[in-house]
Every structure is written in C-alpha cells, then in structure tokens.
Amino acid sequence: MASQGTKRSYEQMETDGERQNATEIRASVGKMIDGIGRFYIQMCTELKLSDYEGRLIQNSLTIERMVLSAFDERRNKYLEEHPSAGKDPKKTGGPIYKRVDRKWMRELVLYDKEEIRRIWRQANNGDDATAGLTHMMIWHSNLNDTTYQRTRALVRTGMDPRMCSLMQGSTLPRRSGAAGAAVKGVGTMVMELIRMIKRGINDRNFWRGENGRKTRSAYERMCNILKGKFQTAAQRAMMDQVRESRNPGNAEIEDLIFLARSALILRGSVAHKSCLPACVYGPAVASGYDFEKEGYSLVGIDPFKLLQNSQVYSLIRPNENPAHKSQLVWMACNSAAFEDLRVLSFIRGTKVSPRGKLSTRGVQIASNENMDAMESSTLELRSRYWAIRTRSGGNTNQQRASAGQISVQPAFSVQRNLPFDKPTIMAAFTGNTEGRTSDMRAEIIRMMEGAKPEEMSFQGRGVFELSDERAANPIVPSFDMSNEGSYFFGDNAEEYDN
C-alpha cells in the first residue's frame, strides 16, 4: 500500500510504541512475548500442572481467558453494579484439565481477579502490559475465525453469508486497541457500523446529549479505520460520505453494504499476525530463551520457528480426527482463516481442507461434555516452508469459486491468482447506482469489472525454506488448481455463540 510509510507498523501498534527502528520493534515485541511466557509459567505453578498438562491447549485457553477477564475493567465495573446470582464479580476462573488415573478430569478453578492481575503485572515488570493482553485477544479471535462461520451475524446486519472472507476479527472485544483495529476485516468494521446506525434509528437519543457526542466521535473513528483499509480513492470518498452524514440511517447502511461487497474484489488491507497460545510461549521462556534479547516478529519467520520446536497437546472428542484438529489450530496460529487453501497447503506441506470436510468441533470443551471418553493427542503445528504475512489485500483475480465463501483475504505475501467468483459478486451490483453516491458507485463498479483474471497478485513473492531466515531465496510455489480455494466452501461450520 502506498501510504505504508505514514502508518505505524503493526509491531508498533502491538507494543504501543512511538516510531521505533526494526531492532527496537523486535525487542519490544519480544518483551511482550516474554511477559506472556513468564505469566503462563507462574500460572502453571499456581495450578500445580504437570509439564504435559501445561502444554494442553484447553488449559492455555482457560488461563488466557482468566487474565483477560481480570483486566476487563468495563465488564468488571458492570458486574459490580449489576450483581447477578451466583456470579462473584471479583473472581474469575474456568475449567482446568488434569490427568488422573490414566483419565482426563475437569476441575473448575476460581481465583481472585486481583490475584491474577498481581501475577500478570509481576510477570511483566510491574506494568499492565496491555500489548500482551491484546495479543491474547487476537489469538482467540484468530481461533474463532478458523472455527466458526459468522453466517447468522452477517444475515442479521443485512449482509450476504458468502462475504465471510471479510469477517476477520469479528469476535475481537471493543477494547483491543490499535492492534485489534489493524486485524479487523472490512466486513467486521461494516458490521460494527451498521449495528451502531441501527441503534440510532431505533433509539432517538442515541446521537443526542453528552453521551451522543461520545457516540458520534466513536462512529467517526470507526469510519476512519474502515476508510484506511480501502485502497481505492472511490471507496475512500464513499467512506467520507458515510462519516460526514448528519443523521446516519438506511442510506448509510446501503452504502456500507455496497462497500463491503466491493471489497470482495477491490480488497481492503487487513493486517495478519501470528499470535500463538500462551502454552507455546511459556515452555520456550522456561527453556531459557530470551525473546527480548533475541527479538521477535509476528509477521516473519519467528512464529514458524517457534511452532517448529513446540509440543502442544489437545483434548480430542471420541469421533474427532486429531489431524483435522491440528489443521484448525495451525490455521489459527498463522492467522489464515480466509487465505486461499492452495497457498496454505503449499506452505504447510500437507493438504489443507475446507472447514466442512474437517471432523472436528471447536477447541474448547463445553462444561456439560462427558470427560470419560476424552483422549488427548499432539497437535501437528509444523510447516514445510515459511512466508511473510501481508497486510495488503493483493490485486484481484477471477477463479472458480464456491457456493460458500466467494473470495479470499490473503494472509501471506505469496504470488498467486486470487480466487473470487466474479459473476456471483457482480450480480449483486445491478441497477442500484442512484442517489448521492452514484458517481462513486459507478466508478467502483467500473474498477471491479476491469479486474483481470490473468493478473498475478504479489508478483514474484515466494515462500522460503525454514533454514532461509533472511528470506534470501524465494520459492514461487505451484498450486494444484483442481483443489478448492475457499475454506468455508459450501460450508456447515458451527455458528459462533458468545
């Protein structure tokens, strides 16, 4: 993207840094990872977990959730003011799984939030270390993106479920800051804005008074975040219109849905970061690795190297396929839920299948599930090659597409044709070009129609051997075009429920 120079890199967003050079960025990201790792080690000690239990991804998720809940100030305040039966607002906890007599047992633990905050700050040299908290939120978000298709949420806001490739980060909490905003897809931002506008339509006082002023500035800020994701002048001009509207209503909703559809071809720039579970960072720190000293990046080879040398386990339900569970977590670790499966298959070195073909449910185990038949197995999170994460949407291309997802959002900077089903997408653009945004709409449609099938995206960008740390010898991959490109292809993934 041309304006790259004016933006802070995501590592800076990730670490609240002012302008830093590459070495400083690597050190501050490393410091953040160190903090998460030290916190995780301490929690495993508190909970008396064995090494194996500490490497269980379900335990990692519970521990991450506990610290996120302990620092969720708004919710904590709300819980104190609106006490609900049987919930102690000062405590947080969740299921911890232990191996007892050759069987997995679930144990519900409860801790004072104050105590968890103390352990977290102690692991982070006394700081609140917001960057580390956001990092864990993005890992949870990436896992949700890989596990669930947001059909219901899309339909509720009037969008087409086939636009799911635009929904990265749709389950990120509001408090995820600049680093969170960077990884949100165009569809996620559109959905947040539509929800806001709908509230304004239904509630006369939404934009009024002292609160209304705050609401208005939040609305304009979200519009600017979305505008910054678009790469064409016409899309940005249309966002200006939406932002400046005196009284946002149905016309703005129409414009936003139009823009979301246009992003299936004229893709937005959305950041991709490899955020790993805390149970990967903990053992690495415990083994003596100093992330701050060595430096770390979320968008280069580092996460690949770390996963190459990590042992992570997962509980497996009786009829689940461990290899499929591994694929789910591998995609989440690489922030690749909406990437082209052919690119992923090449990088991973084994075939990556669409969601609907995987015999696996989510990673988390519900409290009512029976533990008797639970097994555990090693997650295979290694890769054959590594590639640089991208934040450009890439230019655009036609490809055989599917009944489910009709476009992709690249996660890796790797040369390819970008699949999208042009006739299906263009069919949504018939007729409606009147109104105050008509010239911009016409211009956007013209650009979409001009998108050429034979153009290559990320020209000359390749993948790298894991021994090639400096990215000196790019390998331009070859793809098996007979395979499906979309992950949520004609899909039956479970729906995400809060």
Rank of each mutant, 00 (worst) to 15 (best):
A278E: 09
P423L: 02
N417P: 15
Q399P: 02
R416C: 13
S314T: 12
V329R: 03
D491S: 09
N202W: 00
A179S: 04
L133I: 15
D468A: 15
L341D: 03
T424R: 00
G126C: 08
W330Q: 06
R342T: 04
M66C: 07
M371A: 02
E465Q: 08
E81N: 06
S478Y: 09
M196I: 06
D88C: 00
M159G: 03
R246P: 01
S274I: 10
I347T: 05
K293L: 02
C223A: 07
N202M: 00
G37I: 03
L49Y: 06
M167G: 03
P453N: 15
H140A: 09
S50G: 03
N395Y: 02
L110K: 03
P453C: 15
S141M: 15
R174D: 10
F71S: 14
Y111T: 15
N483Q: 01
T130D: 09
K227F: 11
D421Q: 15
V186I: 02
L154M: 01
M222S: 06
R470M: 05
S3P: 08
R175S: 06
M426N: 13
F420S: 00
Q12D: 00
E494V: 09
K214T: 15
V463H: 09
Y97R: 13
G300H: 11
R117H: 02
P283N: 00
M136C: 03
S9G: 10
F258G: 07
G349V: 04
I444D: 09
T62A: 14
R156L: 04
G460N: 12
P83W: 07
D240I: 12
Y487M: 11
K87H: 12
L68P: 03
G169L: 04
G485H: 15
G404W: 13
G185R: 04
A286P: 03
L466Y: 01
T433R: 00
K77A: 03
M440P: 01
I316S: 13
V363K: 13
F479Y: 00
L381M: 01
S407Y: 14
V67L: 06
S367Y: 02
G435W: 04
S28M: 13
V363Q: 09
E339W: 12
L68A: 01
G295W: 10
I96R: 14
L306S: 04
W207T: 07
E18S: 03
L193N: 13
E252L: 08
A411N: 09
D203M: 10
Q58K: 05
N76K: 08
S28K: 00
H272F: 11
L49K: 03
G295M: 10
S478C: 13
L307T: 08
K422D: 02
M43T: 03
E11L: 01
P248T: 06
K87E: 15
E320N: 10
R162C: 06
G200I: 07
A411C: 00
D290G: 14
K48T: 05
A129D: 09
V285Y: 04
V299G: 12
E114N: 05
L226Y: 11
D203N: 08
E294H: 00
Q398K: 15
V343W: 12
E252W: 11
R441G: 13
A85H: 15
G17L: 02
S314C: 15
E465N: 10
E339S: 12
W104G: 08
T6W: 11
M374R: 14
P248R: 14
G5L: 13
S269K: 10
G86V: 03
P453M: 07
A336G: 09
E115P: 08
N21P: 14
T433V: 01
G126N: 00
H272Y: 09
W207N: 13
Q311C: 07
H324G: 05
R243K: 15
R213Q: 04
S314P: 14
H324A: 03
T433H: 14
E107Y: 07
S217Y: 06
A271D: 03
A85G: 01
D480P: 14
S367M: 02
V100L: 04
Q364A: 00
W330A: 04
G249L: 08
K90P: 05
P173E: 05
P477D: 11
G37R: 07
G356I: 08
M32W: 10
D497G: 15
E369N: 11
S353N: 01
M447A: 15
C333P: 04
A271N: 09
I253F: 05
G288F: 10
G30A: 04
A366Y: 10
G132M: 11
S141D: 13
T171A: 13
E494A: 05
Q364W: 03
L315F: 02
G94R: 05
A472T: 15
I253G: 08
M456P: 13
S383A: 00
Y385T: 14
L193W: 04
E380P: 02
P474I: 09
P283T: 00
M189R: 01
N473R: 00
D51H: 01
Y219D: 15
R261S: 12
S28C: 01
K113D: 10
K293Q: 01
R99L: 00
A337W: 06
P318D: 05
R267Y: 12
D290F: 10
A131G: 03
K227Y: 11
D203T: 07
L264N: 14
F258M: 10
V476D: 12
S84G: 05
A181N: 00
R208A: 06
R441H: 13
M447H: 02
I116H: 12
N432T: 01
I63D: 00
A70H: 07
R106P: 01
V414G: 03
A428F: 00
V242W: 07
M1K: 14
A427K: 00
M163V: 03
G393Y: 10
